[in-house]
């Protein structure tokens, strides 16, 4: 296209000729670099910024800086690394992590299994919306942590109440975003489906559901974040196991390095689960791939 555009403009007769020989490795590498420059730059800056964070942390703790906040007892990155290499061989630490993951998996999955269909149905059928929405709006602002005492009363075991808290945390973001997605479905697409012979059920499956998917995935991502927040709080208050309990226990036992280790583990787990959801979203919605 640029070649013909140039020729039409009549400015330069020198037409760009396509390369005939297969490009050498050098040109390919150069081209790849040019196409991915922005991404490479972001990665490089990201790595540098993480290293800088570690360095500042290291300096603050080795010199035990006291300026407004006190770094006197804060473990250094090296100390945390030492306790990490110990913990990774400790089955108890791994069990804490696995238990937290299991609670997230069950609580979050239940929230998605209930929240998404409920949102879809509420978005489609006014009466269901009118019945359920007021109740949801009253319950929604209550933070999941505030449910802890109630959850302990409601559920026979501690494990169940923690999963319930996790469920509650992720349920409302999933429901609200699904509803939002349903409200934004382009009515022209619904009409297009109708005059191609689609009936109610097909319209639901072929139009409303896929049209809402991007918002459903936003809900799932937000819901996953809130699920971790709720889980850690619940584990700290009422747990016996789990990474949140591990972190709190470390404080009680004056294992300062383990506090930071627990925090970092929570961060990594949260990051990992949102990466998983984003990946699933890309698989399910190939049309929105960039």
């Amino acid at each position: 296209m640029p070649a013909t555009a140039l020729a039409e403009a009549g400015s330069a007769p020198a037409v760009v000729t396509p390369p005939t020989a297969p490009p050498s490795f050098g040109t390919l590498a150069l081209r790849w670099y040019r196409l991915n420059r922005a991404g490479l730059r972001a990665t490089a800056i990201g790595v540098i910024s993480l290293l800088a964070f570690l360095l500042v942390w290291h300096l603050l703790t080795t010199y035990r800086v006291v300026f407004l906040v006190r770094f006197t007892n804060v473990p250094s990155p090296l100390a945390v690394y030492a306790s990490f290499s110990k913990a990774i061989h400790d089955p108890k630490f791994l069990m804490h992590i696995l238990l937290s993951c299991r609670r997230i998996f069950i609580g979050f999955s239940l929230a998605a299994i209930v929240g998404v269909p409920l949102g879809l149905i509420m978005g489609r059928f006014k009466l269901v919306h009118e019945i359920i929405f007021p109740v949801a709006e009253v319950l929604r602002p209550i933070p999941a942590i505030a449910w802890v005492p109630m959850a302990i009363m409601l559920w026979p075991t501690n494990e169940q109440s923690i999963v319930f808290i996790t469920f509650l945390g992720s349920f409302f973001p999933i429901l609200v975003n699904t509803l939002h997605g349903m409200s934004l479905v382009d009515p022209v697409l619904v009409r297009a489906a109708q005059c191609l012979g689609a009936r109610e059920r097909s319209i639901f499956r072929e139009v409303y559901f896929p049209a809402s998917l991007p918002h459903i995935f936003t809900g799932l991502t937000v819901g996953m974040g809130v699920a971790w927040v709720s889980l850690i709080a619940a584990e700290m208050i009422s747990g016996q196991y789990g990474i949140g309990y591990f972190t709190w226990e470390a404080y009680s036992l004056v294992q300062y390095a383990d506090i930071a280790l627990g925090m970092i583990a929570i961060g990594v787990l949260g990051l990992g689960s949102s990466v998983l959801i984003r990946g699933a979203g890309r698989l399910v919605m190939p049309w929105s791939a960039k």
Partner: peptide
């Protein structure tokens, strides 16, 4: 509405989540 009367809208009304062929097959 029915498939007896096909309609083309001013706004492009293709299903974004379907390929061109899947749209035509709908």
């Amino acid at each position: 509405p029915s498939a007896e009367r096909g309609m083309v809208f001013q706004q492009y009304s293709l299903f974004p989540w379907k390929t061109v062929r899947e749209n035509v097959e709908f």
